[in-house]
Design a protein around this nucleic acid. Structure first.
Lengths: 137, 137
DNA sequence: ATCCTTGCAAATGATTTGCAAGAGT
DNA sequence: ACTCTTGCAAATCATTTGCAAGGAT
């Protein structure tokens, strides 16, 4: 469990109760949509406004506290920022799981970027398919 | 240049003039947003309605004629379906370029999927950074 | 005390829908 | 001819904005 108040201040943002609750919800979900974040956060803080969620998600993405994960055909999800990793996305149940980034893939993409004179900053790797549970059904 | 009429029929869709124009626009753009597609297509076919663009894009994605490319922080783009490839996305000018998928990366992700009991179907690899042109500025 | 943030309500923007008329096979 | 598709207008849903009141440092 993180010290979110500290994390926010480092990013130049005030540590409001709303922001901390939002971050806690995202942490517990792993990946969550705006709507999920809102629905879950108002359980702890009923006066929270949806507009506040939007404003904060945007702000925290901008400040690098959160990371945006667009998901083909579904709503965008948000996760706490961390090192590069791979998303395994189940197209049946919608679950998103993180897997550590493979060293070798890292290498490949870095060298591709270098040879293309492309200044690589961030990468998004989404693998879509069926998770183990959904293959049975 | 593709035979789009044929491509549509294969997918079980009628080859209407609207759909063909839409596909031509996407082909010439490489990657385009709904709005770009609409704005460009009405030049050739002024009576086209925006609702028709939405309906068709959705349908053609579903039928596998088009491929959806979500772009972090920007509007979703659409491309003609083709083999797996890598997107180099410039966060400054917004340009999206395709690069052939690296054999080795293919291997890595396949074997990761296998060991996770994940039935891999599709992959999205977006590399974000600055293109050569934008690095100078 | 100051400046940032919240919550509300309204405005804007994006996407979807229903249906009668028109086009493709 | 039959069925699918279009275009329109309205409905719905998602996101953003302005501003007065409240909260964090």
């Amino acid at each position: 469990m993180y010290d979110f108040a500290e994390r926010l201040k480092e990013a130049g943002l005030k540590a409001t109760i709303q922001r901390i609750f939002i971050l806690e919800v995202i942490e517990s979900y792993g990946h969550a949509t705006i709507e999920e974040i809102y629905e879950e956060t108002i359980k702890k803080h009923p006066s929270l406004s949806l507009a506040t969620v939007y404003k904060n998600i945007l702000l925290m993405v901008e400040k690098g506290v959160l990371n945006e994960v667009p998901v083909t055909g579904k709503k965008t999800k948000y996760e706490l920022s961390k090192e590069d990793h791979i998303h395994l996305i189940c197209t049946s149940c919608g679950k998103v799981e993180d897997r550590p980034y493979l060293e070798d893939a890292q290498q490949l993409f870095s060298s591709l970027s270098r040879s293309e004179h492309f200044a690589l900053r961030q990468q998004l790797i989404n693998l879509y398919g069926l998770c183990h549970a959904c293959q049975s059904a």
